[in-house]
Simulated scan of single mutants.
Amino acid sequence: MERTYVMLKPDAILKKLAGRIIDRIESKGYRIVDLKIMNLDKNILREHYAHVVEQPFYPSMESYMMSGPVWAMIVEGDNAVQGIRMLMGATKFEDALPGTIRGD
């Protein structure tokens, strides 16, 4: 049994997709064991994205991430880490395959 972190970002909440995303996660047999709705601030974002904070795109990403609430979830299940990665699709939207959450 594995656990992994999933964050529904501001656009998913704004577009009212959270329920559909959660349904897909649960229909694959995973269980959401914790969920917290948060408004992120600069300190949290700098810690979470420390690996890219010096990149030229970071200021716009930080602004986007503070534009609305996020849903932070812990998801549990067999092979959850790899399974959730496959379900969510590529990190870069333009690389996402049809059928993944990012590719729809």
Rank of each mutant, 00 (worst) to 15 (best):
K42F: 01
I84C: 07
K92G: 05
V52S: 00
L40A: 14
V33E: 05
E47I: 06
M88T: 09
E54P: 00
I101K: 14
D34K: 01
M66T: 13
Q55K: 15
E47P: 06
N43D: 11
K16L: 06
A50L: 03
V33R: 02
M86L: 12
I44F: 15
I84V: 11
I22R: 00
G99S: 10
P56K: 14
S27F: 09
E62K: 00
L35Y: 03
I37S: 04
T91A: 09
R31W: 04
Y5H: 08
T100M: 07
I22A: 00
D104Q: 11
D23T: 05
I32G: 01
S67Y: 09
F93C: 05
S27N: 13
M7C: 09
I13H: 01
W71M: 14
Y30P: 04
Y58S: 02
D78S: 06
V75Q: 00
A80H: 07
K36R: 12
D41N: 14
R20A: 11
E26G: 01
Y58Q: 06
L97F: 07
E47N: 13
M73C: 05
V81H: 12
M65P: 04
P10C: 01
R102W: 00
G77P: 08
G68D: 02
A72V: 15
I32P: 13
K15W: 15
Y58P: 02
D95F: 08
L8Y: 10
I74W: 03
Q82S: 11
E54W: 00
I44V: 10
P10L: 00
E76G: 04
S67M: 12
V6S: 10
I13R: 03
R46P: 01
D23R: 07
M1F: 12
Y30I: 02
P56H: 08
E2T: 08
G89R: 11
M1K: 13
L35M: 14
T100S: 14
A90R: 05
Y64S: 09
T100W: 06
T4A: 08
V75S: 02
I37A: 06
M66H: 04
M1I: 09
N43Q: 07
P59M: 09
M65Y: 07
R31Q: 08
G77Q: 12
G99P: 10
W71S: 15
L97P: 02
G103I: 02
V53Q: 03
L14E: 12
L8N: 02
T91F: 13
G83Q: 09
S27R: 13
I32N: 02
K92E: 08
W71R: 07
T91G: 02
G19S: 02
I22Y: 00
I13L: 15
W71T: 15
Y5T: 14
V81S: 06
A90K: 10
V75R: 11
V33A: 05
G68R: 09
I22C: 01
Q82L: 15
A18S: 15
S63N: 10
K15S: 14
D78E: 10
G29T: 12
I84N: 03
G77V: 12
L87Q: 08
W71N: 13
L97Y: 12
T91P: 10
K15E: 15
N43H: 03
G77C: 11
D34Q: 11
R24F: 03
L97D: 08
I84T: 04
I84W: 09
D104W: 11
E2S: 08
I21P: 04
D41T: 00
G103F: 07
R3H: 03
S27G: 01
F57H: 07
I32Y: 04
D95A: 07
Q55N: 07
K15Y: 06
S67I: 03
P98F: 04
